[in-house]
Structure formats: C-alpha cells, structure tokens
Design a protein around this nucleic acid. Sequence first.
DNA 1: GTAAACCCTGTACAACGTACAGTACCGTCT
DNA 2: AGACGGTACTGTACGTTGTACAGGGTTTAC
Lengths: 240, 240
Amino acid sequence: MPRPLIDLLWRDRPGATAGGSRGPRARYSTGDVVSRAIALADEGGLAAVTVRALAQSLELTAMSVYTHVNSRDDLLVLMADHAHGQMTTTPFGRSTWRTRVRRLAEDNLALLRDHPWLLGIDDPRTALGPGTIAKYDHELHAFDGTSISDIRRDAALTFVLDFVRSTAARTVMTPATGDFGELWEQSVDRLAGYLGDDFALAQRVGRAAGEAMGGPHDAERAWQFGLTRVIAGLGDLDSR
Amino acid sequence: MPRPLIDLLWRDRPGATAGGSRGPRARYSTGDVVSRAIALADEGGLAAVTVRALAQSLELTAMSVYTHVNSRDDLLVLMADHAHGQMTTTPFGRSTWRTRVRRLAEDNLALLRDHPWLLGIDDPRTALGPGTIAKYDHELHAFDGTSISDIRRDAALTFVLDFVRSTAARTVMTPATGDFGELWEQSVDRLAGYLGDDFALAQRVGRAAGEAMGGPHDAERAWQFGLTRVIAGLGDLDSR
DNA sequence: GTAAACCCTGTACAACGTACAGTACCGTCT
DNA sequence: AGACGGTACTGTACGTTGTACAGGGTTTAC
C-alpha cells in the first residue's frame, strides 16, 4: 500500500518520508501518475479520469494504479494540488491591494480555464498540499500593507476566490456541460406556451440576459461586473 | 416513455400537456416520485438517491422508475425545481433594496441548509422549471425601485446567489463531507513537520482562521462578513 | 541465504444507470 | 363487441465504475 496522502502530497519536498527501498523499482513515480491523470482530465474532463483509463494510459493494469495512489479520491487531491503548484502567478510588485486582488482573480480564472476539472474537485484535504498552501500564502500577501486582521484577511481571500470559482463554473465549458444554447432554442417554444404572461419581470430580464449571453463579450462583461463589485465590496481596507 | 422533461416540470400548471389516458392507472404521480426522491436526499444526500433505492422506497422495481422519469439526471432537475417552488420566501414589503437582498440571501441560505443536496445539482435545465422561474422572478423584484438595467439586474442577482451558494457549500455539512476537524487534528502533526518555517503568513493566518473555525459563531461571522461585502459591492444602485 | 518489503497482475464483486423484451391493463376506435 | 395501441410495470441483462483479495516476481536488508 502506498504512503498516506499527506506524505504523497509532500513527496518532493525535502524531509519527505521516502518510500521503502526494497522491492523492484517502480516504473513510474507518483508525479508521473499524477501528470498522466491531469493530461487525461485536461482532454476529457474528470469523467475521463477513471482508474482503468489511467492504467491503460500508463500501460499498467487497473489495480497497479493502486500501487501509487490509495484511491481515486486521493488521486484527485494530488491532481488539484499539483495544478495549484504549477499555477502561474503574476507577481504583485508594488501595486495597491486593489490591483493585486484583480491580478489574483485573473490568475485564478486562467487556472480554472486551463483546468476546468478543478471545478469538480471539492475535497478539503487539498488544503493540506504544498502547492495549495504555497498558493494560499502568495495570495494572502495581496493584502499586505493594509491593516486587515488575520481572520478577515482569510475571509477576504475566500470571498474573492469563491467569486472566481462561481463565475468560472458558469463561463467555462466543461466537456460534461452541453451547449446551453442548443437546449434553449430547443425548448423555448414550449416554455413560452407555458409561461404566457406570468412572471413578466423574469421574462423581460431573462430575455435581456439571454440575448446578451449570445453576444460576443458577455462572459467578459459579467466577469468585470462581478470583479468590480467584489473589490468595491472589500471597501477601504487601508483604513480599518 | 414518459413525457419530455419540460412537460414534466410544468405538469401541475394549467395548460400542461397531459399524459395519454390509456393504460392502467399509475400507482404514483410524478409528484409522488419526486417527493420520495427528495425525502431520500434530505436523509442521505444525493448519493442516496439511486434509481434502485428510490424504486424500493416506492415498492417498485428499478426499471419502473423510468415510467415516471426519463433518467436520473432529469429526476434531479425535477427535485431541484420542486425545492425551489416550495421555498419559503420572506416578503419584501416596503424595505430598501439592501435589506431585500439581505432577506433574499438569508432565504437562500436556509433553503440550502434544508436541502444540502441542491449544492450537488448543477444542471442548467433547472432554469426551465416553474419553481425556479418563480423564484427568479421574485428575487429580481428585490431591485425594484432602483434604476438598474435589466442585464445588470440579472448579473447582480447572480452575484448574490453565487455568494450564498459558495458560503453554503463551505458551511453546510453534507453527509458526504466528513468532519473537517477530525481530518485536521489527525494530520496537523505531520503537516507541521513538513511546513517548518516556510509560508509564515499562511501558517499564521491559517492558524487564526482555523481556531476561529472551531469557535461558536464563526460560520455566522463569515456569512455576515461576506454578505456585508456583497451588499457594499453593489454600491448605490439607486443613483445609476 | 533467508526474510521482508515492494511492484505488479488476474480475478472477482458490488453498485451503478439503463437498454430491451415481455406482460397485464385500459381507454378508444371500428 | 372486438381489435388496436398506448401505458404501467416486471425481469433479465449489459457495460462501467471503484476496489478488495490473493498471489508472483524482484529487489534490498539482515
């Protein structure tokens, strides 16, 4: 049985509890396995990351995967932490916390665009990994120079990241999510019949929002709308 | 085969396309099936809503469920829409949009507390249902009296609801989510060993946030923090 | 040289969603 | 009255999933 998850997460860091040295050499390192899994996920979404598919992609049998990883859930945590560790972060430089938060949000959006499957991983154990902790540390520094308390600093960061995640979930096209446009055109007739004149406001706003959604830069506009509101909501951190 | 999803969603509304009248009477109505499914989900989470379990709970065979519903995914949409339709909404009265948004957010949090499994349903087709549309309509009215545009009205509502959903996802105890406290105490030692003195800021803030998380009213505090920021972020809708 | 630890394989199981074929029932049409 | 056809339901079965379990071969530690 492989080492416990925490040790796998920290496998490359100095001081890592190494695996025993006896027995045949493994054909793949843990990192290899995680990388292949990520490649599969980038291509076909989380659903494509089955133990069997991963095994085949490594030219192993299904059960051999469990030599490197304790369970599929653990694998997902390793994937997420790896992605967090590889994330490209725009350096903050000497900017204000507002532009830092903006960059941070944009970086995270890019991350979720590159790896939409991250939206499907919601395991709290991810927070134990070095990549995730490094990311957390870096992003907390966005609020340096303000007089925000530690607890609120954490809350503020969570607030920003939650916004990014929500928006990405709606924007990003997961392989699982079929095109909503098709669905819409397909059912709008019958829906109109049912609706009649009820819910006038919903119909008016829904139509406006729906039409804009087809437009060229709507996703971008929704993003800017929200991000502006997030930053405005954080208010004047400097004087508090 | 049952009627298509849209017709099932609108089954109780006047003008609904009724099912054919021939054949034996069904032992259960669509509403019965959906209600039983919701009961299962309330008890054991979405994972407990298997076709077989639902069938057993109705004293049917597994395949008979498909007489009432086209697929499990459709069933989930029906469940979500039903929950949205049953949602208790605090009337807005004559209050300002700020307190309306606050109530709206609180109502939605309560909804997600009562039915945590809603967090696991992310099907856009839910938006086609009468319950969801009624909810949408009602919540859009929160911004009545302001001069906000239709598109921004939709964006603002989405912004609020996304915040609620994110916070609920972290707060609410899903049956799937084991207690994070256990996990933490179990791995904090080894983690401390790996961390050493690196990521000082993350460690300090994480400790502060972690300790507060054990505290009695932390979830409440995080909620208030975020909600205040959401409303502040929306700014002065009256003059725009 | 022996024993322990390790990588890897093959077989197998339980649970899942659901396709397909068939049976009993019932309103509708001839 | 009788045939038709749509409906509710059942039973069997298939493919896919994660993974438990029992070995077999290989390498290192003692």
